[in-house]
Nucleic acid binder design. Structure first.
Lengths: 207, 207
DNA sequence: TTTCCCATCCCCTGAACAGGGGATTTTGTT
DNA sequence: AACAAAATCCCCTGTTCAGGGGATGGGAAA
C-alpha cells in the first residue's frame, strides 16, 4: 500500500510540531508538508500531491472553513480533516458543508488521529469521539438544552440586542409569539431573565 | 552551563508532542518528562529534579492553578511557566498569584519559548507577547472597555441574573446607583440593552 | 386515530429596564 | 489647592420584560 501523504495546517507552531511528531510515528503516513496558514497550504498542494489535509478551523486571515472550500474547488480529490478545540466545535458543521470528511478535537490521541486518517482515506466520514473531556466539558454537554430551530433563531436575535417587537417584525410573527419563544428559552435554560440566558448561551457556544 | 531540566504538563497529546519536538531543538534544555496531568507531574518531580515546569492552565481534575500551588509548596525552587490559549488568558493572574514566573500563549514560536525559559531561569518574570494574534483577537483587545472596579462588580452580578434591586441590596447601595452603573456599562460597551451587554462581556471573557 | 412537539396566538399584571435629565460627595493625582 | 474620575444619589417617563394563565392548528411518529 502507498503511504498516505498528509499536509497539516495550523498557525500554532506547537501544534505543527506536535502533529509532525505524531504522524512520524504512524507507519502508513508520509508527511507532505506543514503550513502555518492557508497560503502556504495551497502552495504546498500545488507543488506536491497530497491525499489528506488536516487543518485547524480557526486561523488568522483565511479560516479553515475558507481553506476547505478552496481545496474542494481546486483539489477535489484531496480529503479534509478539520481540527478544533472542544470549545470551538460549533463550527464543524460549516467545515463539513465546505467539504471536510472528518473532524478531530485537538485533545485527540495518536491512535484516534490514526483512525481518523484511515477512515477518511477510505472515503468514510470521521467524527471525533473524545474520551478525555474534562468533567466541566462533560457537564456542559449534558446540560445543553435541546432547542427547536425557531428557538435558536429567536435566541440569536435576542443576543443581538433586538427587542420582542423588533424580532416579531423581522420574523413576520406576533409579539406574543416571540414572547412565548423567549419564555420557553428561559424555561429550557432554567434561568429567570435575559442576562442569565445570554450568559449560558455564550457558555455553551450557542451564540 | 548545566542544561535546564524541564517538565511539560498538558492533557493534550498533540501539545505534549509539539513541546517535545520544540524543546529537543533547544540546546540548553533537557526534557525531564512529559505529564498528561497534575498527578503525573508531581510523580515526575518527586522522582527526578527539574528546574522549570511548563504547565497548561486548564486541565481536567486538577487545574494548572492548583498544580502551581502544589509545586510552590513542595518544590519552592522549581519555576513555573503557565500556558494557555489566547481566549483563556484571563486566568493568568491566578497562576501568578500561585507562583508562576512566566506565561506563554500556545501560539508561541520556538524562539519565544526559548526566551521565556531563559528569562524565568534567571529569575525574571516572563509575559508572552504574542505577535501572531489573529485580526479578530487584535480587534478584541482594542475594543475592550476600561471598567472601574465597581462597574466590573455590577457587571458580574447582572450576568448572574440579579436585578437592580437585588444588586442594590447586596452591595448596600441605592437602586439608583446600581442603575447608574448599569447605564455606564451600556455606554462603555456601546450597546442598548442587557442582552447585548452580556454577549459582549462574554466575548471579551469578562464573565 | 392518538399523542406529542412545535409554532402560533392571546390575556392580565407588576416589576424591571432604558433613555433622558440632573446633582453632590469621595477619592486619587498633580 | 485644583482637577478629574469614580461612586453615590435623585427625578420622570414610556417601553419592555417576566410570571402567570390560557388557546388552536399542523406535522410527525407510534
Amino acid at each position: 500500500m502507498d503511504k498516505i501523504r498528509i499536509i497539516v495546517v495550523d498557525d500554532h507552531p506547537m501544534v505543527l510540531e506536535g502533529m509532525r511528531g505524531m504522524l512520524s510515528q504512524i507507519g502508513f503516513v508520509e508527511l507532505a508538508g506543514l503550513a502555518a496558514n492557508a497560503y502556504e497550504a495551497m502552495t504546498i498542494l500545488k507543488a506536491s500531491a497530497a491525499d489528506i489535509v488536516i487543518t485547524d478551523i480557526n486561523m488568522p486571515e483565511i479560516s479553515g472553513i475558507e481553506l476547505a472550500a478552496k481545496i474542494r474547488t481546486e483539489f477535489p480529490k484531496v480529503k479534509i480533516i478539520a481540527m478544533s478545540t472542544f470549545k470551538e466545535r460549533s463550527y464543524i458543521s460549516q467545515m463539513i458543508q465546505n467539504g471536510a470528511s472528518g473532524y478531530l478535537v485537538k485533545s485527540a490521541s495518536r491512535e484516534e488521529i490514526e483512525e481518523a486518517i484511515l477512515s477518511v482515506h477510505e472515503g468514510k466520514l470521521y467524527m471525533s469521539l473524545d474520551v478525555s473531556l474534562s468533567s466541566a466539558d462533560k457537564q456542559e454537554m449534558v446540560n445543553v438544552p435541546m432547542l427547536s430551530s425557531r428557538e435558536k433563531e429567536v435566541l440569536l436575535l435576542i443576543a443581538d440586542g433586538m427587542t420582542n417587537p423588533q424580532i416579531a417584525s423581522k420574523l413576520f410573527i406576533s409579539l406574543h409569539t416571540v414572547d412565548s419563544h423567549r419564555k420557553n428559552l428561559l424555561t429550557k435554560f432554567s434561568v429567570n431573565n435575559t442576562a442569565s440566558l445570554i450568559k449560558q448561551a455564550a457558555k455553551f457556544n450557542l451564540i
